[in-house]
């Protein structure tokens, strides 16, 4: 199962047309609408969490693009700026998932991104502002 949070931007002409339902109907994907809005100049924005087999996912995205929808990756991740991190350890007080831990015996600070839930508590807790939220660097396919 492949899952991603996507931002879809619909052109003015596409807003009134049923589009995302085809993801379920024709491509066997399931999705949760996290946000949907039509802007004053009639462009639409929708944030979807889309899940399904990787192949279907790829085909579904291709379909959306053919409809003139701009598809962007909306998932975010926390990154550490290695140059800014001084290994003080202040972040380990707030990290709820153990992604940021003091490693022994050298007492350096390890960041395991796989354990990170992107709660972002470390961002303001880091005294040197080494922790930043970025759009995830992974592409969809």
């Amino acid at each position: 199962m492949y899952s991603k949070i996507l931002t879809l931007r619909f052109p003015k002409t596409g807003v009134s047309k049923p589009t995302v339902c085809h993801l379920a109907k024709d491509y066997g994907l399931i999705f949760t609408i996290l946000k949907a809005t039509v802007l004053p100049r009639k462009e639409g924005i929708m944030v979807l969490e889309v899940s399904g087999p990787k192949k279907n996912f790829k085909n579904g995205i291709t379909f959306l693009k053919e409809q003139g929808v701009l598809v962007q990756n909306a998932s975010r991740e926390v990154n550490r700026n290695a140059k800014k991190c001084i290994h003080c350890g202040a972040c380990t007080a707030v990290c709820p998932t153990g992604a940021l831990v003091v490693s022994h015996p050298e007492l350096s600070i390890d960041f395991n991104i796989k354990k990170c839930s992107v709660c972002e508590l470390c961002v303001p807790a880091c005294p040197t502002r080494a922790m930043k939220v970025h759009p995830t660097s992974e592409t969809f396919f």
């Binding site: 001084i86 290994h87 003080c88 350890g89 202040a90 380990t92 007080a93 003091v102 022994h104 050298e106 007492l107 350096s108």
Partner: peptide, 25 residues
Amino acid sequence: LKSGTIELDGKSVQTVPLSSMVKAR
């Protein structure tokens, strides 16, 4: 403190350093 936990009132408490040992070294 550097082991990662201390005992306080019979409870194990996570320790957090603020002084960088990596940089001190």
